[in-house]
Amino acid sequence: MTPEDVLGRLDARLSPGRRIAYVVVALAGLVGSALIGLLWATEPALPTRTGVAFAVLIAIGLSWTVVGTWAVTRRTPLFARDRVVAGWLGLAAWAVFAGGALIVAPGVRGWPFVVVGALGVAAVVALVSALRTRSALLRRKAELGG
């Protein structure tokens, strides 16, 4: 087995596009589930079959989130640059969720606001952490003459 054989077999794992695709899948599932959950929670007196349909859709969305999260933590972990891209995608996803929440549940106050705020804080923290990690690695790279 040559180094090129090894690299060929690892090709899929090393593909940045695939890692980012998993992030997008996870975020899309999360935003979709959260918006449906918000609609369900703020809409009074929904028919039972509508509730069941919402529950199924939320389960599907969360399943994609679990798959994407598993992939980027266990299967194809994110490198520093991927984490920065994922951080910005997370912030964009939160913006979509916040905008969707305003449309889906206008005028609603209380705990939905807390949820939207908490997700926003989580997105910002993840992005800042990714930027710091990448900066530290870039500094170290420069120190080592790279």
Partner: peptide, 23 residues
């Protein structure tokens, strides 16, 4: 160390170099 740092940043050619060196 430099190779590993470059790999951690996500530089794919650095990983190829690392494999060639240590395989």
């Amino acid at each position: 160390e430099l190779l590993v740092v470059r790999c951690q940043l996500g530089e794919r050619d650095a990983f190829a170099e690392l494999v060639r060196e240590w395989h």
